[in-house]
Amino acid sequence: MSNLSLSVAIGNYDRNRALIDGEVQIDGVNPVFMKLSPEEIFFRAFRHQEFDICELSFSSYTLSVSRGTNDYIAIPAFLSRAFRHSCIYIRNDKGINSPEDLKGKRIGVAEYQLTANVWARALLEEEYGVCPSDITWVRGGMEVADRPEKVKLTLPKGVVMEPAAAGRTLNSLLEEGEIDGFIGPRTLSCFDKGHPNVVRLFSDSRAAGTKYYKKTGVFPIMHVVGVRRSLVEQHNWLPMALLKAFEQSKAAALAALSDTSATKVTLPFVEEQIEDARKLMGNDYFSYGYKNNLKTLETFLDHHYRQGLSERPVKADELFWPATQEGYSI
Score class of each variant (00 low, 15 high):
Ala9Lys: 05
Asp204Val: 00
Lys94Phe: 00
Val198Ser: 11
Glu127Gln: 10
Ile41Trp: 07
Val24Gly: 01
Leu153Glu: 12
Glu318Ile: 07
Leu201Pro: 11
Asp180Ala: 08
Ser64Gln: 10
Glu111Ile: 02
Met142Ser: 11
Glu100Ile: 06
Ile96Thr: 03
Ala262Arg: 15
Phe46Leu: 07
Ser310Leu: 00
Ala208Thr: 06
Val198Ile: 03
Asn16Val: 01
Pro132Lys: 01
Ile179Val: 07
Phe42Ser: 13
Asn97Ile: 09
Gly289Gln: 13
Glu127Trp: 08
Val118Cys: 08
Asn97Pro: 06
Glu298Cys: 10
Ile88Ser: 14
Leu36Phe: 08
Ala207Arg: 08
Gly28Phe: 05
Thr324Asn: 13
Glu127Ser: 08
Phe43Ile: 12
Thr187Met: 09
Cys54Gly: 06
Glu247Gln: 15
Leu257Pro: 08
Tyr128Val: 00
Gly209Val: 02
Gln307Thr: 00
Phe43Cys: 11
Gly22Ser: 09
Ile135Val: 14
Val65Cys: 05
Val199Arg: 00
Met142Val: 12
Trp137Glu: 03
Arg81Tyr: 07
Thr266Ala: 04
Asn12Ile: 02
Asp276Cys: 09
Lys215Tyr: 04
Leu231His: 00
Ser60Thr: 15
Ala252Lys: 14
Arg67Ser: 02
Val224Glu: 07
Ala45Cys: 04
Asp192Ile: 02
Val138Trp: 13
Ile88Tyr: 09
Ile330Asp: 15
Lys105Phe: 05
Tyr212Asn: 08
Asp27Lys: 13
Tyr288Glu: 00
Arg47Val: 07
Asn70Leu: 10
Pro239Cys: 08
Arg278Ile: 08
Asp317Phe: 10
Asn3Trp: 06
Ser133Gly: 10
Glu318Leu: 01
Gly68Glu: 06
Lys103Asn: 03
Ala18Gln: 00
Glu125Val: 07
Glu311Asp: 10
Leu102Asn: 11
Ser2Asn: 07
Ser261Asp: 12
Glu175Ile: 13
Thr69Leu: 05
Phe246Thr: 15
Leu102Arg: 03
Val65Phe: 14
Asp204Gly: 01
Gly28Ser: 02
Ser57Met: 08
Glu271Tyr: 11
Phe43Leu: 11
Ile75Asn: 07
Val130Arg: 06
Val225Glu: 05
Lys105Asn: 03
Met142Pro: 05
Cys54Leu: 03
Pro76Gln: 08
Arg229Ile: 07
Ala120His: 06
Glu176Ile: 01
Lys264Phe: 14
Met34Leu: 15
Ser133Thr: 11
Thr210Gln: 02
Tyr290Ile: 03
Asn236Gln: 12
Tyr61Leu: 00
Val159Ser: 06
Val314Phe: 06
Glu176Asp: 13
Gln307His: 15
Met1Ile: 08
Arg168Thr: 07
Asn293Glu: 11
